[in-house]
């Protein structure tokens, strides 16, 4: 990582985001806490529906009301609790100091404006550039995200670009305001692997150039392994494990993380390895039990796990070292007895 200081850019504390539906109260995010430091690249992973997007939208206060409500917690951005901020203040922060790339690029780009116009508008608004400066800067940003012939392509409309290129244009747009924090929600799911890697490569490079903090939400654990500094594993609206990337991959200490890593097919084994299967389905977030949400699928679940929910705490086995590295997990089972499944055997 490039020169990092310990300055906390984003501090999410006990966030609760609920949706009031006919089926009951969907606790999409329920007691989520994490920090992102200056220049840090954080990966947020977890099964579909576990609340990743809702947690990101909550940071920008973009939860549709009704049915959604941020029911509790704090979102402290550079010392300021965004949950207390006025709507006017939030408009200053969105797309200016915190930029977000949404899961669905086609719905976020305006189809009737050229991409150059869209980026320029943002540059004029947020950075106060004049028309000519904005035009040159748009081309430079498109070049940074790897669009060939950028000065020619600024006059093209979104549909004239492939899905992967649209995704990169979204990132160029997000960067046009020189944000302090970039949140990218699944920027890669529908893309093939070469394009996925290119995109994360670009984000990693820009993180260095712009000295911003990045949170990327993704299903692809391979990309996480390659690019992020810290991994947050989410399950049913909460973090179940968090730690430096190498620690999480080498010594996962939550049964869900262990299962998740073992279910990824790998290319580097000498023979074919059948991925392991985590049995069952993620829980219905409207009807959560009082115990650990993972207990119904967990091979290690004990009575204690069904009775009450474990909190995120420093991993005990590595002691002081864990506290320093910030390896935490929410699980009652003896960490020393939990080991990574070796997928290369």
């Amino acid at each position: 990582m490039s020169e990092q200081n310990d300055h906390v850019v984003l501090d999410v504390k006990g966030l609760q985001t609920y949706f009031y539906t006919d089926d009951g109260v969907v606790k999409a995010v329920d007691g989520l806490s994490y920090q992102v430091r200056n220049g840090e690249f954080v990966g947020l992973v977890g099964e579909s529906g576990c609340g990743k997007s809702v947690s990101a939208m909550s940071v920008l206060r973009l939860i549709p009301y009704p049915p959604g409500v941020i029911a509790g917690g704090q979102i402290v951005f550079k010392g300021e609790d965004l949950l207390q901020a006025s709507e006017e203040r939030m408009r200053e922060i969105r797309g200016n100091r915190i930029a977000m790339v949404f899961q669905e690029p086609t719905t976020s780009l305006n189809p009737v404006l050229t991409v150059g116009r869209q980026i320029s508008e943002s540059l004029e608004l947020h950075r106060g550039l004049d028309k000519n400066e904005a035009r040159d800067e748009s081309a430079r940003l498109l070049d940074l995200v790897g669009i060939p012939d950028p000065s020619k392509r600024v006059t093209d409309y979104p549909y004239q670009f492939s899905g992967g290129m649209q995704q990169r244009i979204m990132i160029a747009m997000a960067l046009s305001c020189d944000p302090e924090l970039l949140i990218a929600d699944e920027p890669t799911t529908s893309l093939d692997v070469t394009v996925q890697a290119q995109l994360l490569e670009i984000i990693a490079k820009l993180r260095d150039e712009f000295q911003m903090a990045v949170v990327v939400i993704t299903h692809n654990l391979g990309l996480v392994a390659r690019y992020v500094d810290r991994v947050n594993v989410m399950y049913a609206g909460k973090l179940v494990e968090s730690g430096p990337t190498e620690t999480i991959f080498a010594e996962p200490k939550h049964p869900y993380t262990v299962g998740l890593l073992a279910s990824v097919p790998r290319l580097d084994s000498h023979h074919k390895v059948v991925p392991r299967v985590i049995p069952g389905l993620p829980p219905n977030l409207a009807h959560l039990s009082q115990g650990c949400s993972f207990a119904p699928r967990c091979a290690y679940a004990m009575d204690e796990c069904r009775a009450s929910a474990p909190q995120l705490e420093p991993v005990a086995t590595t002691g002081a070292a864990a506290e320093a590295s910030g390896h935490e997990r929410a699980c009652f089972y003896d960490a020393a007895k939990l080991e990574k499944v070796d997928m290369l055997d």
Binding site: S162, M165, A197, N220, A225, R226, E246, L261, L267, D268
Partner: peptide, 23 residues
């Protein structure tokens, strides 16, 4: 094949990657 990330940061770092230019 070289572009496929390996879900293990230690292994992934040691692999040679060939990045194709252009679309």
């Amino acid at each position: 094949l070289s572009a496929v990330p390996i879900p293990d940061p230690v292994v992934d770092r040691t692999r040679e990657r060939i990045v194709l230019e252009g679309d």
